[in-house]
Design a protein around this nucleic acid. Structure first.
Lengths: 137, 137
DNA sequence: CAGCATCCGGTTCGATACTG
DNA sequence: CAGTATCGAACCGGATGCTG
């Protein structure tokens, strides 16, 4: 699962060291991870994987997200270089959000995770119920 | 929990229906997703992928996590059936945490995501700096 | 060692109101 | 349409003290 796209990494800093790295709270990866795995970040990446969307479209698509949170989430992902914001200078305003190339890479991995959970949701919920029953018994 | 490795399991439950599902806030997948992608959930799954660990080991391994949060996270993941808690009835207490089979499946996908971010952390941070510079300019 | 109960500060979040 | 500003409410998360 190595990628050649943007990996300009130092060879001395690979694999074993890198793997243990997120576990150190000083690691900057944690911040990025936060943005990506944040409550709405995951869903925004997932939604944008299906194509370009306008702000209001995203609001409708991602049920339950507030204006403020969507805006905030989009800003974070844009700053991390995962989301591209394109504003068309017309009235009324028309702004489109899409994934950058690195955005598509993370989003693809997020999608794998989300898909797995959705496909296996029933067994998971069953296990949870069983667990709850077992606890109370 | 017998599913094959990848997400494309049951054809009747895949793709269009499943994909749009998390985006609805009524979808139970969101709850599971929260647990898995929570601040410490990600790191716990990642850490346990390397083998069984005791509570105190996890605390040392995952820098910055508090006792309370680790406990809380482990409970959530245990309830979802991703983590197995094994208490040895000795004094002093000896408790071990490991991944269940479904836990290994989610964790594998989490690992993919984490690894990608770590490998690409430098370009990402550069993009972020550039973005910040561009904003202030 | 493992972990729960309690308290409490800080951040997050949502609803509302307002701007270009 | 696409946001920002502001303000309480809710929740998160850390520190402490205590139990088996």
């Amino acid at each position: 699962m190595n990628n050649s796209a943007t990996a300009g990494t130092d060879p001395t800093l690979t694999d074993k060291f890198q793997r243990g790295n997120v576990l150190a709270n000083s690691c900057p990866s944690r911040g990025i991870l936060q943005d990506v795995t944040s409550r709405w970040g995951v869903l925004v990446l997932f939604a944008l994987l299906q194509g370009t969307h306008r702000f209001s479209e995203l609001r409708k698509t991602i049920t339950g997200v507030s204006e403020k949170m969507l805006s905030q989430t989009l800003h974070a992902l844009e700053a991390d270089g995962f989301v591209l914001r394109t504003a068309h200078p017309v009235i009324p305003p028309h702004v489109e959000y899409s994934l950058t190339s690195s955005g598509r890479e993370v989003a693809a991995r997020v999608e794998e995770l989300v898909n797995w959970i959705e496909v296996n949701i029933n067994p998971i919920l069953s296990a949870r119920d069983e667990y709850a029953a077992h606890k109370s018994a």
